[in-house]
Design a protein around this nucleic acid. Structure first.
Length: 304
DNA sequence: CCCTGTGTTGAA
DNA sequence: TCAACACAGGGG
């Protein structure tokens, strides 16, 4: 009974519901070209080459939503199509009110976005894997202001627990070399414009606000660092030693020439509201819905 | 030549 | 409505 299918449509807003990690899969006999693992997700079908297809049915015929590298992506595609084709009550693989920190309105906005496009257009976006990007564009245009990129459209890169010096007077964040070299653009002379001043990187935070940091390599300490702009981020977010900053990028890269990067943070422990409030930041109300985020790990009983 | 996605069938 | 299966035909 119930062979693995997620009976619960709501799989929570977990970014990486990594399950295929089960390992110990079974030595697949090469006699069968396609093991046909049969997807755990609704609307997802295995492809001969190991990829996954997404499809939805309407009026006796199938609407193909494209092929994807992983089941999750295909499941997302199906969900979007289901929303557009069958409305908000459609049964989906994931909890559709795509949990975005900023607002309860994001899901509403997405519904509006869907309503503003024909089924064919939505299907086309899904097939071309441009839906996330188009959605963002649409939200910007319609809403008139920056909207945070939903967590599901982000790909976790790495995170770091900030040290006292990272949030101190040095006005810099040391980026672990290993991660810097793997995920950030190279700080070569060509990229930096032949001066050793590093380059400027844009990071979108959880509120959709874009931060620009100077990123460079310090020969003196053999370290990669974020400098100019960093102290402002620390100040505005109220970062303290022990907090964690998380870096991610758009999961749907159009062109590698300018990939979108994201930065978020997680407080070591939730409180300090009083302290933060005491700072009388007139800029904005403290947005503390960041607990729900990528790369985190499961939140222990958020129902509180 | 590989992969997509359509044709098709049987089950829910 | 849905997924399993087979493989034509398209695109590189």
């Amino acid at each position: 009974m119930a062979s693995g299918k997620p009976t619960n449509p709501e799989i929570d807003n977990d970014m990486e519901c990594s399950s295929p990690e089960s390992g110990a899969e079974d030595a697949v006999e090469s006699s069968s070209p396609a093991p046909a693992p049969s997807s755990r997700f609704k609307g997802v079908v295995p492809q001969p080459n190991g990829r996954w297809g997404a499809q939805i049915y309407e009026k006796h015929s199938r609407v193909w939503l494209g092929t994807f590298a992983d089941e999750e992506s295909a499941a997302r595609a199906y969900d979007v199509a289901a929303l557009r084709f069958r409305g908000r009550d459609a049964v989906t693989n994931y909890q559709l009110p795509l949990a975005v920190e900023g607002a309860s309105s994001s899901s509403t906005s997405e519904l509006a976005f869907l309503a503003d496009h024909s089924k064919a257009e939505i299907v086309d976006m899904l097939r071309k894997h441009t839906y996330a990007d188009e959605l963002r564009q649409g939200l910007r245009r319609g809403h008139g202001r920056a909207q945070p990129t939903p967590a599901w459209a982000r790909e976790f890169l790495f995170e770091k627990a900030v040290t006292p010096s990272d949030v101190g007077k040095l006005n810099r964040l040391v980026v672990p070399k290993q991660h810097a070299e793997k995920h950030f653009p190279p700080t070569t002379a060509a990229a930096t414009g032949s001066n050793g001043k590093g380059l400027l990187l844009n990071f979108e935070d959880g509120e959709g606000k874009v931060w620009r940091f100077r990123y460079s390599y310090w020969n003196s300490s053999q370290s990669y660092v974020l400098t100019k702009g960093w102290s402002r981020f620390v100040r505005e977010k109220g970062l303290v030693a022990g907090d964690t900053v998380t870096f991610s990028r758009s999961a749907y890269v159009m062109n590698d020439t300018e990939e979108q990067l994201f930065i978020d943070y997680k407080q070591k422990n939730k409180n300090d509201e009083a302290a933060d409030a005491a700072k009388n930041e007139a800029g904005h109300a403290a947005v503390k819905l960041f607990g729900v985020d990528i790369g985190g790990g499961e939140m222990a009983g958020s129902s509180g």
